[in-house]
């Protein structure tokens, strides 16, 4: 469960103040599939960063799973990112000198999980995303789709309740992008909250709830009853 109340975030560019988020109220229930759409500069990425605890609101409050996040220490927030949130990025953000398996293992290492257990979970993740053959390849030796599958495996290996995807198909061609989306949607089907930021209307329309943003405000919030 995600609840944002009166969240504001302002950036300063020189002497100009940019209101990336302007008094936003938003509630997303557990297990929802939400897309956030809007032109660039509309504040959709800032919203995602705040939900993902990468950024802090200037004012307003943020509750995740009935817990007020805004006042938590940096270390506590890192722990919540590790355990409850998985990020998928447009440019994959894999570490180039690590193999696919090592990239997937990273969140487990950060959590201090024992090496034997890590091996089991990495192996399972590789299998789930059909990467077993590619386990020892570095990102440079993988195709775009494979890279994004590694990134999704990394995002899910801690079994987080929320997956945040920022333009997950932006660097992929149409067919591969569709495959990646169906992988993410499979995760949603197994109960994970899925939030996708995109400016691609077609992609956004696949979500059961579509939020439209413009100039730091939510101007549209539609739900498909078919969900």
């Amino acid at each position: 469960m995600i609840r944002l109340t009166a969240v504001t975030r302002t950036f300063h560019m020189g002497d100009q103040a940019i209101h990336a988020l302007n008094n936003i109220d938003l509630h997303i229930a557990s297990g929802e599939y939400v897309s956030i759409m809007g032109p660039s500069g509309s504040g959709k990425s800032t919203l995602l960063n705040i939900i993902g605890l990468l950024d802090r609101p200037d004012s307003g409050s943020y509750e995740l799973d009935n817990r007020l996040i805004t006042d938590l220490s940096e270390t506590e927030q890192a722990r919540i990112r590790r355990e409850k949130i998985g990020f998928v990025f447009q440019s994959f953000h894999l570490i180039p000198r690590l193999t696919a398996a090592e990239n997937i293992e990273l969140p487990l290492i950060l959590s201090g999980i024992a090496p034997e257990q890590r091996q089991v979970r990495v192996h399972a993740a590789l299998q789930a995303f059909e990467l077993t053959q590619r386990a020892n390849h570095r990102p440079a030796e993988l195709s775009g789709g494979q890279r994004q599958r590694v990134a999704i495996a990394r995002a899910t290996v801690m079994r987080p309740g929320v997956i945040l995807a920022d333009e997950p198909t932006g660097n992929l061609d149409h067919q591969i992008g569709a495959e990646v989306m169906s992988l993410l949607e499979n995760l949603h089907r197994s109960g994970t909250t899925l939030i996708v930021v995109t400016h691609d209307r077609e992609l956004g329309a696949r979500a059961h709830r579509q939020i439209g943003m413009r100039d730091g405000n939510i101007f549209a919030d539609r739900s498909d009853d078919a969900a």
Binding site: R81, F87, H93, L106, L110, R154
Partner: peptide, 8 residues
């Protein structure tokens, strides 16, 4: 990235 996946 390390921060995003939970490094303090």
């Amino acid at each position: 990235l390390l921060k995003a996946i939970g490094a303090t």
